[in-house]
Write a protein that binds this DNA or RNA. Structure first.
Lengths: 223, 223
DNA sequence: CGGATGTATTTTGCATACATGATTTTACCA
DNA sequence: TGGTAAAATCATGTATGCAAAATACATCCG
């Protein structure tokens, strides 16, 4: 494990800061699957007591990022290929739901934001700025969730995204995926603009299955 | 709030027992939406210290059954009609996914169990045994989740069910819903047996929209 | 009487102390 | 030397103590 740092700048309960820190570390891979989350050790490393650590672990546990065995402790949740495929199946169903709902509810402002996002994505592809690309991709989908006007759906989808995040980043690292991804985003926006619900569902489905296939390759290569 | 009782029979961390107790109390309505979850008070009532209470609250929070405001405390999450509709939309998409997956994966044993469940449900309708009916209904859907062979999907669906549980029970209280519900279950099983994916999706969709409509009526009547 | 202000009480947030179960080490015996 | 048992160590589970924030309440001033 690398050294964790607590950016406690905000006036937030420490448990939330610890939670965010550990979550980040897990998603970035600094804390690896199977790695033990020992309270005393983390407390020392983050400069807090065990109490906020424990509460953060309970939260990570409910988020599915950690698993705990009573009297044994917590460890970073592993993700098998099957887990991944399971999550992607759910994600497909819900992303399609989201884009269908978005078709009904999307506003002009939101469409404009999506188009701006595409420009941003294009720029980051050209600049080969991976971080910005990942951020733009996330933002793109977030905007659609937002337009779906179903906060709960947004919550579930964000939650699912977290768990496949590691591989998603790998997917973006491969240059050859970029043009297709960009084109799909374009078509989705075009479909949303015309409120072509069925059409846009199809594109989204394609968009996701392309990603899913690539991500499965990645996880297979890693094992 | 009624008096809570801790059935600490098991050898489990207290936080888990407390969590289960509070969860139950919220779902049954003993702890009402908006009601404050005060640590000291709950600790006294359950005969434990604040520590396991706090951890249980963090878990409830992540489950969406409680909301916490920093330095202010936690309270039982309210569920508005919109929240409910949002959850039902997601549930529809995922129940359909589940039944489609079940079509592919279901075994003879699982089909037999479903048929047995229908007999049980029918018996409890005849006996007008509401508790058994509710249990059978939950078991019916659980079996389908199980057959879908996607544990994660099962997790999300169970989670969604929790949040609409209160109203689902109300739905079952109305006698006139029983025959239709039973018939829909029968058709779903028949469709699963023949692996008619599209057909069974349609029936499930109908099944859920019937329930959703009724539950919306209920929540409307309550407000 | 209304509103503001200061004080008392309550409640959360965090740390620490103590107890208990798990794990590892060590020592002893076959 | 190998294995087992006991002891020491370590980590988690739970309770409690203390500080600070929030709330409630009373008092004072206009």
């Amino acid at each position: 494990m690398d050294d964790l740092e607590l950016n406690a700048n905000a006036y937030l309960p420490l448990r939330d800061v610890v939670f965010a820190t550990l979550r980040e570390a897990i998603l970035k891979g600094d804390l690896k699957p199977g790695e033990r989350l020992m309270e005393l050790q983390l407390a020392a490393k983050l400069g807090v007591s065990r109490t906020p650590i424990r509460e953060a672990i309970r939260m990570l546990q409910k988020e599915g990022l950690a698993v705990t065995i009573p009297r044994k402790g917590a460890q970073v949740a592993a993700m098998t290929q099957k887990d991944m495929e399971d999550a992607l199946q759910i994600r497909e169903a819900l992303e399609i739901l989201a884009v269908r709902l978005a078709c009904e509810h999307i506003t002009k402002q939101q469409l404009a934001a999506l188009e701006h996002n595409i420009a941003l994505f294009e720029a980051s592809v050209k600049a080969n700025d991976l971080a910005q690309m990942a951020q733009a991709d996330i933002a793109f989908h977030d905007m659609i969730y937002e337009a779906a006007s179903n906060p709960r759906l947004m919550g579930v989808l964000n939650h699912l995204r977290e768990n496949v995040y590691r591989y998603r980043v790998e997917y973006l690292k491969d240059d050859k995926n970029h043009p297709r991804l960009l084109e799909e985003h374009r078509q989705i926006v075009a479909g949303l603009k015309r409120q072509e619900k069925e059409h846009v569902s199809e594109i989204m489905k394609q968009h996701l299955s392309n990603q899913a296939a690539a991500m499965k390759d990645i996880i297979r290569a890693q094992e």
